[in-house]
Amino acid sequence: MALEVGASTAGSFDGMHCELVDTLATKPDAVTWGHNYGIVVNERCKRFYDEGKRHLFAIFKMIVLELWRDHNQKGVLHH
């Protein structure tokens, strides 16, 4: 609506902020930070990313984006 009346945009629109969450958690902040101690597999139990490829926070974002983009937004952490 604002764009329709002449408002400008700012920022980056080619990415997003996302986090791995535990879908079984009962707390509102169910962020999962343990993936650096195991492997993450998709819902077909296939490993799809090298968890040691980069530093923790870069890997965290890349795993989430990959799950969102190509794996039905579902993955499992195996320790």
Rank of each mutant, 00 (worst) to 15 (best):
A10E: 14
E43Y: 12
A25M: 04
G6S: 00
V40C: 03
L67T: 01
H71G: 01
K74N: 11
D22K: 02
M1R: 12
H55Q: 12
L67Y: 02
K74C: 07
G38Q: 03
C45D: 12
G75Q: 05
R47E: 14
A2Y: 06
H71R: 09
E43G: 00
G75R: 02
G34R: 07
C18L: 08
G52Y: 11
R54I: 05
L24R: 13
S8W: 04
Y49H: 07
Q73Y: 14
I63N: 03
M16W: 11
A7K: 06
Q73G: 02
D50Y: 06
G38V: 01
S8D: 09
L67E: 01
A25L: 03
K74I: 08
H35W: 15
T9M: 09
F48D: 05
S12H: 15
M1C: 08
L3Y: 03
Q73C: 10
W68M: 11
A25V: 00
P28G: 01
E19N: 11
G15S: 13
V41R: 03
D22Y: 01
N36S: 11
H71W: 12
G11K: 04
T26Q: 10
D50I: 03
H17T: 13
I59S: 10
V21E: 11
K53H: 12
V31N: 09
D70N: 07
R69F: 05
E66H: 11
G11D: 04
G38M: 00
A2R: 15
Y49E: 01
H79P: 13
M1E: 13
H17Y: 10
H78P: 05
D70G: 03
H17M: 14
C18Y: 02
R47W: 11
G11M: 08
V5N: 10
K61R: 12
F13R: 06
V41A: 01
L77F: 08
V64S: 14
R47Q: 13
F48H: 06
M62L: 15
V21C: 06
C45G: 05
L65W: 10
M62Q: 15
Q73I: 05
